[in-house]
Design a protein around this nucleic acid. Structure first.
Length: 803
RNA sequence: GCUGGUGUGGCGGAAUGGCAGACGCACGGGACUUAAAAUCCCGAGGUGGCAACACCGUGUGGGUUCGACUCCCACCACCAGCACCA
């Protein structure tokens, strides 16, 4: 039989006997919930990147099962999204049909690589019995006051309507190449910032990889500062947020976001309104991304004739508009202190604005003296009136205090993280289950009427006026208010793809429940997830959305845990053999199914494990794959060397115990490459002695089983070890059997290697050192010198320092 | 630009602060073969040397240490993400 037939045979057996289906509770077994991010079922099917993480985490799951855990390892698909909609438009098919086709392909491919999935728990986010609960949960957000409709800005194309960021290339529409602009639009928003602090703080209770924690904390971007009100000469006022209140006496200008309502309210008093309008028009063309830090060349326009009043000095301060200030971030206005902020410094130079140094300790004629340089260095204030001579730290407190007492400021926490814009003017998403009534306002669809089904439409393209295609189906839009019964309109926006993926891990726990999204009992038996694996691209958004969603449900008493993921890891990319991202255009792609057909799924799995450190990116190589294929052949060939024996032989004892230890620890620590390497070392030992007994082969096959599940099980049966590997136990090692009685160590004199000496590991340290010093080369090196220090690292190295 | 990450032979990569290069690929030599493939054995970081051996060597420059790929500081290069792709 060839590998392909063997693999298909075992895949069928696993499925027929429901080998990997689990109950929520099994007497005497501990539960483990292992999760890999469900894929977006694109038309391209499973790619190498999927293969790497899927086979790796599958190996982890299989090992845990062999260790006697009740392991849930589910799989599903995140089906809503732009790509299916675009394909639908292109192929003149329904997104529903395209997605159904793609899901089938994905599931077959997941089977083909030998994943140990519990298929009884499979879910798709676009299934009615799934998205019903996504809608239900949205309503809970609304009822709790965490969902509201609010003005935001969107990318807008005059022909194609609202565009995703991805669809805008250099300020033009990727479909029709018209120039795009930023347009204000009312959108549903989930108030995620209300959870910002907890999302950052609670990371301490998780075992996420350090860089993931850091990324999330930076994304949330908590900063403590002061919000200060500034009066405008001739009436009106506005607020700014600053983390550097100590520099307030150095203010020489203010900058307001160009689109700010404040600018409109000052129209009559602004003497250069034309110039302001032109600048606003230019700004509208730029995306937020272009306007933020990306933009090196800060520009602005002075509002002629309008001045703010400095709250401490009472002096007049000019006001500018500048596109680097965003209306939606902070208060949409900033104070500018060119001597102590580099961006302000450059702006002031460009527009010839005064500068006043207020913190002593550096020359500010060439560049600003910024907070990371003056904080904590005992720097003192100057040119700041009554605050002169205070240290920066003292001044921070004193100035805040004074402004608060004056009633013009308050301490405030500010977050970089924004609320979650939850509306899409797209067809292919969950309809937002809300109704707008002239009398009652926004009213949720009654829960017994869920799901609000996605209706059939003729055209999937967004409308030119920027509304969802659903808005064109008048019959669907027209409804009655659930509250007062008067005629009302349905919300026509749909949810973003992130919605369904924010709680899918809960549905796996109770996938067929039609009374609730998942029972508390089912959730309690599995959450938190023991190991959650996904791509680095989800480190901030998906992972924060899902944590936020769960925290909300936790507050509602609907989730048993405040953190859903105990441990989070992310895999590195698989690159083409040229070291570049695999893609059609680069022609460096490799199709997993072709690899399986030519070699085997097991060879592919072993290669994906061996290719390199799981957390780093790695380049594909055909040679590496072939080497793993050869390795499997070698394991198979051992069956011809099989001899009797139910205990490890003397010759292989140390090798067996070392391999068990290394492979066990490496899988637990997600070091699959060195686990395979350890198995290769063991197989080299076996090849050297040219025989292997039953006990040894059983252990070898078990250790390899998580990586090469098909062939190991086939060999197991063939050698008569049992009818299958279903009830096999993960082998144990004995620490005592690992230690070699004699070992060669390097001996250094003054940190330079002078000899290699065989030592008996049973001896005491001074006995060993005495033996070392008796060595001819060592003796010569220390001759006539005084020994200052002797270092001995057991079994590795000795260093004698002599003068 | 900001944030996160990476940098070790010809290549993929190993190394709780302790003999850098495990394991594998490619390569060279040999065995088997009419031959090739497959398989097996041996060799190998670089430079110099017949050799023993010497010197150099983990992106660059400093530092800490008996000892640094590993820790600290500064820099360079590359990769990823940046909120409506998911």
């Amino acid at each position: 039989m060839n590998y392909q037939d063997i693999e298909k045979k075992w895949q069928r057996i696993w499925e027929d006997e429901k080998r990997f289906e689990v109950k929520n509770k099994v007497e005497g077994k501990k539960n483990k919930y292992i999760l890999i991010e469900f894929p977006y079922p694109s038309g391209k099917g499973l790619h190498m990147g999927h293969c790497r993480s899927y086979t790796a985490i599958d190996a982890y799951a299989r090992k845990q099962r062999l260790e006697g855990y009740n392991v849930m390892f589910p799989f599903g698909t995140d089906a809503y999204g732009l790509e299916a909609e675009r394909t639908a438009i292109k192929e003149h098919k329904k997104p529903q049909d395209i997605v159904a086709r793609n899901i089938k392909t994905f599931q077959n491919q997941v089977r083909a690589i030998g994943m140990s999935i519990d298929w009884s728990r499979t879910i798709n986010t676009c299934d009615e019995d799934y998205y019903k609960w996504t809608q239900w949960q949205f309503i809970q957000f609304f009822k709790a006051g965490l969902a509201e409709k609010r003005e935001t800005t969107v990318n807008y194309c005059p022909n194609c309507g609202v565009l995703a960021n991805e669809e805008v290339e250099d300020g033009t529409c990727c479909q029709c190449h018209s120039e795009t602009t930023q347009k204000a639009k009312a959108q549903w928003v989930l108030k995620m910032t209300e959870y910002a602090e907890r999302l950052a703080d609670d990371l301490k209770d998780t075992d996420f990889m350090e860089h993931i924690k850091t990324s999330q904390i930076n994304w949330i971007g908590k900063s403590e500062g002061v919000e200060v009100d500034f009066d405008i000469v001739g009436g009106g006022k506005f607020s700014i947020f600053t983390t550097c209140i100590e520099t307030i006496c150095g203010i020489t200008f203010m900058v307001v976001a160009p689109e700010s309502n404040l600018v409109d309210s000052l129209k009559d008093r602004i003497q250069n309104w034309n110039e302001v309008e032109n600048y606003r028009r230019e700004t509208a063309k730029k995306s937020e991304f272009d306007r933020s830090e990306m933009n090196k060349d800060k520009s602005g326009v002075k509002l002629e004739g309008v001045y703010a009043v400095h709250p401490l000095s009472g002096k007049k301060v000019p006001i500018f508009i500048g596109d680097f200030v965003l209306a939606g971030y902070g208060t949409g206005a900033v104070m500018a202190v060119p001597t102590h902020d580099q961006r302000d410094f450059e702006f002031a130079q460009k527009y010839n604005i005064d500068m006043i140094q207020v913190i002593d300790g550096a020359d500010v004629s060439k560049c600003a003296f910024e907070k990371h340089d003056y904080l904590g260095n005992g720097c003192k204030l100057i040119n700041s009136g009554e605050f002169d001579g205070l240290t920066v730290e003292e001044a921070k407190a004193a100035i805040t205090d004074k402004l608060v007492k004056m009633g013009v400021a308050r301490k405030k926490l500010n977050f970089k993280m924004r609320d979650w814009v939850f509306s899409r003017q797209r067809y292919w998403g969950e309809p937002i289950p809300m109704v707008y009534c002239e009398t009652c306002g926004w009213v949720p669809v009654p829960e017994d009427q869920l799901p609000v089904k996605l209706p059939d439409v003729e055209s999937y393209e967004p409308t030119k006026d920027g509304e969802s295609p659903l808005s064109l189906i008048t019959d669907w839009v027209k409804t009655t208010c659930p509250h007062c019964g008067k005629p009302a309109k349905r919300e026509t926006d749909t949810m973003p793809g992130w919605a369904g993926s924010s709680w899918y891990f809960m549905r796996y726990c109770d996938a067929h429940n039609d009374k609730e999204f998942a029972s508390r009992e089912a959730l309690s038996s599995w959450l938190p997830i023991d190991l959650y694996n996904g791509g680095n691209e989800h480190t901030t958004r998906h992972l924060l959305y899902a944590r936020f969603w769960n925290k909300f449900l936790y507050d509602q008493g609907l989730s048993p845990v405040s953190e859903p993921f105990a441990r989070r890891i992310s895999q590195g990319l698989i690159l083409g053999s040229d070291g570049k991202k695999m893609s059609k255009s680069a022609g460096n792609g490799v199709d997993p199914l072709e690899v399986i057909a030519k070699y085997s799924a097991d060879a592919l799995r072993v290669w994906m494990s061996f290719i390199g450190d799981y957390f780093e990116s790695a380049s594909w190589s055909d040679e590496g794959l072939k080497a793993c294929y050869k390795f499997i052949n070698k394991i198979v060939s051992f069956k011809d060397m099989l001899v009797e024996g139910e205990e490890y032989s003397k010759e292989l004892e140390v090798a067996m115990h070392s391999a068990i230890k290394k492979v066990s620890q490496d899988i637990d620590n997600i070091k699959f490459n060195t686990a395979i390497s350890a198995l290769m070392i063991l197989s080299n030992e076996v090849a050297k002695v040219k025989k292997i007994n039953h006990a040894e082969y059983k252990t070898l096959l078990t250790l390899l089983n998580p990586f090469a599940p098909h062939i190991t099980e086939e060999l197991w049966v063939e050698c008569g070890f049992g009818a299958s590997m279903k009830d096999v136990q993960w082998p144990k090692y004995d620490e005592k059997k690992l230690v070699k009685s004699e070992v060669e160590i390097a001996v250094q004199v003054n940190s330079k290697i002078v000899a290699r000496v065989n030592i008996n590991t049973q001896l005491k340290q001074d006995e060993i050192l005495a033996e070392i010093k008796a060595n001819e080369n060592v003796a010569k090196a220390i001759e006539g010198k005084t020994i200052v220090k002797e270092i001995y690292v057991p079994g590795r190295i000795a260093n004698i320092i002599a003068k």
